[in-house]
Amino acid sequence: MTALAALIRRDIRIALRVGGGALIGVLFFLTVVVLMPFAVGPDLALLSRLGPAILWLGALLASLLTLDRLFMADHEDGSLDLITMSRTPLELACAAKALAHWLAAGLPLIVATPVLGLLLNLDMAATGAVALTLLAGTPALTFTGMIGAALAVTLHRGGLLMAVLVLPLSIPVLIFGVAASQAAITGPLSFGAPFSILCALSLVSLIVGPFAAAASLKHGLD
């Protein structure tokens, strides 16, 4: 347990210290959301209808793009070798790294959501619904994206390839995330059903992600 706590502490510390790595994700989120009205026009009624979708797309892209270097940095400086050799199972170490990443880069996105909701003319209830679905859904994005980050180490290339690999995997999360927030705002569907599925997706990815990432890292060793 101390080993995992130490790993989480270290990763969060680095994320907050180096170049505001985590905060650049929020800045990206903000920029993507601000770009949307320029494409669809400043019609507030339209924006508030599209709002949840825009916020979800922004959060999706922001959380995946910051994942790029989740394992790459540790691979480059040799830390990954020592983590693999240690008594801590690699699956747990992967889960700890993803958790640290979510705390440092995923939570700030959710904190930023109310401000962005204001820009998109979402009322309090709608913003709350989107923030709640993001809180339930972004862990799924991080833990699925982690598989891509591990593959990036194995394949020695990250960036766009990783995005192409991972984005299709995150489609279910997007569907139910947006569906749940829309249901909370306009109906007619109930909020509970899509939200439960969203939570289920997160829980499944919490298990699948670390195992897939660890397997990919083990095979990619050289």
Binding site: A3, R10, I14, R17, V18, G78, D81, L82, S86, T88
Partner: peptide, 21 residues
């Protein structure tokens, strides 16, 4: 060297000590 430039010397060492156990 498995070191993180952003962490201090002591933090680097104590991380590995905690992690390796």
């Amino acid at each position: 060297d498995a070191l993180k430039p952003a962490l201090s010397v002591a933090e680097n060492l104590s991380f590995w000590a905690d992690f390796l156990g």
